[in-house]
C-alpha cells in the first residue's frame, strides 16, 4: 500500500453526501422556526449517513461475533490437539494477545494484514518484478497487486477497509474466545467423557456429540463477557478508518459557521451523549438477553442451575 495515511479518516471522507437536499421543505434553512429548523437539521443527508453508521456498528458486531467464535473454536481445538506443533500454535495464539494492549494489535494488524495481502498478490501477479518491496520507508508493489485496485470505485475502498477491520477484530477476539472455549472444554465433567468412551464412541464422536454440546453452558459467562467487551471495542472502528458513529459525531458536532446551511456552535458534547446512550442501551439489552440464554442453556444440565430448574418444574 503506497498511500500513506490511507487509514486516516480524513482521506476516506466521501463526497457522496454533499449537495444532497434534505427532505421536508427545507429549501432555505435560515428562515425556519426553531422546531422546524431542528427537524430539517436532523434529516439532512449527512445526518442520514450518521444514522446509517449505527447500522455499520451493528453489522460489525453481527459479522465479527461468529467470525471470532470460529477463530476461537479453531484455536481451542488446536490447543487441545495431540499433535505437538499444532498445540503450540493454538496455545501461542491465545498467549500472544495477553499482556499487550489490544489497541496496539488493532493498529498493527490493519497495516500488517494489508501489506501481507498486497505482498502475496505481488508475488503471484508480478513474478518478474525486480525491485525490492521495501524501499527505505516505502512499501512498493506493482500496480496490479494493489488492494483494492486504484481504479476501483469508492465503495470498494470502503468495504475493503471494513473487511480488514472485521478480520482484525476477529483475530483479536478469536484469541480471547479460544481462551474461554479451551477452559470450557476442560470443565465438562470427566464422567461424561468416560461414559461416552464406555459406550464405545470414538474420539471424534465423543468430541462432537458429548463435549461440544455440553461445553456451551460453561463457556457462556466468558463469552458473554467477551460480547460486552466487543460492544465496547466497536468505537475503535474509527481508528481503523471506517466512517463509524464516532467519525460522524465529530464531523457533525463540530461548530459550523454561517457558510453552512445549518450554522451552530460546538455541539459535539450532545452527539457524544447520544453515543453514550446508544452504548448503554446496547449493553443493557445484551445483559438481559444473556441471562435468558443462560437460563435456556442450563436446562437439563448436570449443574447447580440445572438442578434448580429441575426442582422448580
Amino acid at each position: 500500500m503506497a498511500r500513506p495515511g490511507f487509514f486516516l479518516p480524513k482521506i476516506l471522507k466521501s463526497n457522496a453526501h454533499q449537495g444532497e437536499q434534505p427532505i421536508l421543505s427545507c429549501a432555505d434553512p435560515k428562515t425556519l422556526e426553531s422546531l422546524h429548523w431542528l427537524a430539517c437539521y436532523l434529516t439532512t443527508g449527512k445526518h442520514m449517513a450518521f444514522y446509517s453508521s449505527f447500522g455499520t456498528v451493528l453489522l460489525l458486531l453481527a459479522v465479527t461475533a461468529p467470525a471470532a467464535l470460529a477463530f476461537g473454536f479453531g484455536g481451542a481445538m488446536a490447543a487441545r490437539s495431540g499433535f505437538a506443533p499444532l498445540r503450540w500454535c493454538g496455545k501461542g495464539y491465545t498467549a500472544i494477545v495477553r499482556g499487550v494492549p489490544d489497541i496496539a494489535f488493532f493498529l498493527f494488524f490493519v497495516i500488517a494484514l494489508d501489506q501481507g495481502f498486497e505482498w502475496l498478490r505481488h508475488k503471484v501477479k508480478c513474478p518478474d518484478w525486480d525491485m525490492p518491496v521495501r524501499q527505505g520507508s516505502d512499501f512498493v508493489v506493482c500496480d496490479a497487486a494493489k488492494m483494492p485496485l486504484s481504479s476501483s470505485p469508492q465503495w470498494v475502498h470502503e468495504s475493503y477497509g471494513f473487511a480488514i477491520a472485521v478480520l482484525t477484530f476477529a483475530i483479536v477476539f478469536g484469541a480471547f474466545a479460544a481462551n474461554v472455549l479451551y477452559g470450557a472444554m476442560g470443565t465438562v465433567p470427566r464422567a461424561q467423557i468416560e461414559t461416552a468412551e464406555a459406550y464405545g464412541l470414538s474420539h471424534r464422536q465423543t468430541f462432537w456429540r458429548i463435549l461440544v454440546p455440553q461445553m456451551w453452558v460453561f463457556a457462556l459467562p466468558g463469552l458473554g463477557n467477551l460480547w460486552m467487551i466487543l460492544i465496547k471495542a466497536t468505537p475503535l472502528l474509527f481508528l481503523l478508518g471506517v466512517e463509524d458513529i464516532v467519525y460522524w459525531a465529530r464531523e457533525l458536532g463540530s461548530s459550523k459557521t454561517a457558510v453552512f446551511d445549518f450554522p451552530h456552535p460546538d455541539w459535539r458534547l450532545y452527539y457524544f451523549l447520544t453515543l453514550l446512550v446508544f452504548y448503554l442501551a446496547l449493553t443493557r439489552v445484551s445483559e438481559v438477553v444473556l441471562s435468558r440464554v443462560n437460563m435456556r442453556l442450563s436446562h437439563g444440565q448436570a449443574t447447580v442451575a440445572g438442578d434448580a430448574q429441575r426442582r422448580a418444574a
Binding site: 460492544i231 465496547k232 471495542a233 466497536t234 468505537p235 475503535l236 474509527f238 464516532v246 459525531a249 465529530r250 458536532g253 460546538d266 459535539r268 458534547l269 457524544f272 451523549l273 453515543l275 453514550l276 452504548y279 448503554l280 449493553t283 443493557r284
Partner: peptide, 22 residues
C-alpha cells in the same frame, strides 16, 4: 457503575474532553 462499565472508555474520553473544552 452502570454508566462507566456499560459504555466504551473511548467514548468516555471523547465526552469528557468535549465537556472540558466547553
Amino acid at each position: 457503575i452502570f454508566v462507566f462499565r456499560g459504555s466504551p472508555l473511548f467514548i468516555q474520553f471523547f465526552l469528557f474532553y468535549e465537556t472540558f473544552v466547553l
